[in-house]
Design a protein around this nucleic acid. Structure first.
Lengths: 232, 232
DNA sequence: CCGTCAATCCTTGCATACAAGATGTTATAC
DNA sequence: GTATAACATCTTGTATGCAAGGATTGACGG
C-alpha cells in the first residue's frame, strides 16, 4: 500500500502518519465525511503539524481525503462516478490480464493457481473473511504474474482498495465467500485450459458480483455518498 | 493537469509552484536526473521553503520527482518498467473503450469523429505538430465519450502524458503525423462500422507506433533512463 | 603522488510562530 | 421572537529557525 514513497527505508514521521491514516480510512474506522484536523493528529502522534500536513497532502493525492483550504479536511465520501471509473479500469485491466494469462499459463502456473485455490477453500471452511481478503488479493496477483504483467497488479490493487473500503460496510461478507471462491475456480479452470473467452467471461461475472453489493450499500448508507453535491 | 487539488479556486502558492514544476518537467525543460532544491525554487518564487516542500511532495506522489531524504531531490528518470506498465494500461483501457465505442456509435458520434479527423488533417497539412498533439488528445477523448466512458479518458490522458514527456525527445514528430492520422482514420472507420475486432486491432497498431520511437530514444538518450540502477 | 580522514557545506526533516480566511455563536437592535 | 452584525474560535497557509544526515572538498600523513 506504500505506493507513495518507498524512497527511503527508515520510515519518517510522514510515512508513519500516512500509513496510519491510510489504514484508518480504508478500514473505515475513519468514516467518510469525518473531519480530521492537522493539530489533532499531530498531538495524537506527538509531533508537530508539519509532518501531518505532508501526510495529508499525500492522502489527498491518493484521493482519500479532501483538503478544503482554511476550512477543514475530511475523509472523502464515496462517489458513484469514482466507483464506476474504478470498475471500468479493473474490468479492462483484468480482461487483458486474463487474456495474457491464458496465453502464458503452463504447468507451474497451473499449480500456483491450484495452491491459491486450496488456501481460499481453507479460509472459506474456517469462515475467515480476513484471511480470505488477503488470499483474494494474492489470487489476482498470481494471475498477473502468470500473464507476465506483474505491474498490472498494482493497478488492480489500487482500484480494488478503493472499493474494498466501501465493502467493509457490507454485512454479508461470509455469505459471499462461496461464490467468490467458485468464481476463482472457474477463472483458474479457464486459464489453465487456455480458454480466453471463458476466462474473460468468468472474470466479468466475478467483477459484477460487487455491483449489487455496492448498490445496496449505496441506499443503506446514502450519507457516505457524495453524488449530487457540488463538492470537489 | 490539475489532478492534484482542484479543491480551491484561488490558487495557492503550492498550486502555482506545483503547476510550474509540472510543466517544466513534462516539457523536459527540466531534464531527467536534474537536481532541484527547495531553497532554490523558493527564492525563484519569492516564497519560503514550505510551499515548495508541499509542491515537491505532490510531484513525488505523481512520480515525477524523487525525494531522497537528506540528500537531494531530482527529476525522475524514465524507466522501461514504468513505460511498459503505462503501455499495458493504455492498451487495456483503449481496447475496452473501442469495444464500447463500437457498441454505442451512432450518426452523431460518427460526425464527431469525422470532424475530429478533418481537424487533424488540417494540422497535418500545416505541419503543426503542437496543434496535432492537442487534437490527438481530443480524438481519444471523443472515443471515450462515444463509449460512454468519459472517465476512461482521464486514465488515458494520465498515461499518455507520461510517455509524451519522453516523446518530446523524438525528432521525427512531423514524419510520424501522417501515419498517426491514418491510424485514426482506420479506428474511426471501424468504430463507425461497429467492427469491434477491426477497431481494437487498429488501436493496437496505433499504440505500437510508439514502441520503436521509444526504443530509439532509449538508446540515444540512455542517460535519461534509469533501469539497472538500484535507485528507487 | 596517492590514500585516508576530517571539517564544512549542502540537502531535507521537523518544530514553532504568525497570518488569513471561514464558521458558528452570541449579543444587540428591531 | 427574529434578524443582523460583530466576535471568538476553529481551520489551513506560510515563514522562519534549528537539527540531522550525506557529499564534497580540503588537508595531512604515508
Amino acid at each position: 500500500m506504500d505506493q507513495t514513497t518507498p524512497d527511503t527505508l527508515t520510515k519518517s514521521s510522514v510515512d508513519q502518519i500516512t500509513d496510519h491514516l491510510y489504514k484508518e480510512i480504508t478500514s473505515l474506522r475513519l468514516l467518510p465525511g469525518a473531519r480530521i484536523s492537522e493539530t489533532e493528529i499531530a498531538q495524537k502522534f506527538g509531533v508537530s503539524r508539519q509532518p501531518v500536513r505532508d501526510a495529508f497532502n499525500r492522502l489527498a493525492t491518493m484521493d482519500l481525503i479532501r483538503i478544503r483550504p482554511k476550512k477543514a479536511t475530511e475523509v472523502k465520501k464515496f462517489s458513484t462516478a469514482a466507483i464506476t471509473k474504478s470498475r471500468y479500469i479493473r474490468a479492462a485491466i483484468e480482461a487483458a490480464v486474463l487474456r495474457d494469462a491464458c496465453k502464458y499459463c503452463d504447468d507451474e502456473a497451473g499449480n500456483a493457481l491450484d495452491t491459491a485455490l486450496s488456501l481460499q477453500k481453507k479460509a472459506l471452511a474456517d469462515r475467515d473473511t480476513e484471511a480470505f481478503g488477503k488470499l483474494d488479493y494474492a489470487f489476482h496477483k498470481t494471475l498477473c504474474d502468470i500473464a507476465k504483467a506483474p505491474f498490472a497488479y498494482e493497478v488492480i490493487q489500487a482500484e480494488k482498495a478503493k472499493v474494498d473500503r466501501l465493502c467493509v460496510l457490507s454485512l454479508a461478507k461470509e455469505d459471499r465467500m462461496p461464490e467468490l471462491v467458485s468464481d476463482h475456480e472457474k477463472i483458474a479452470e479457464a486459464v489453465k485450459a487456455g480458454d480466453e473467452t471463458a476466462a474473460q467471461e468468468a472474470g466479468m461475472i466475478h467483477l459484477s458480483r460487487l455491483d449489487d453489493t455496492i448498490a445496496r450499500i449505496r441506499v443503506q448508507r446514502a450519507a457516505f455518498f457524495d453524488d449530487e453535491s457540488a463538492a470537489d
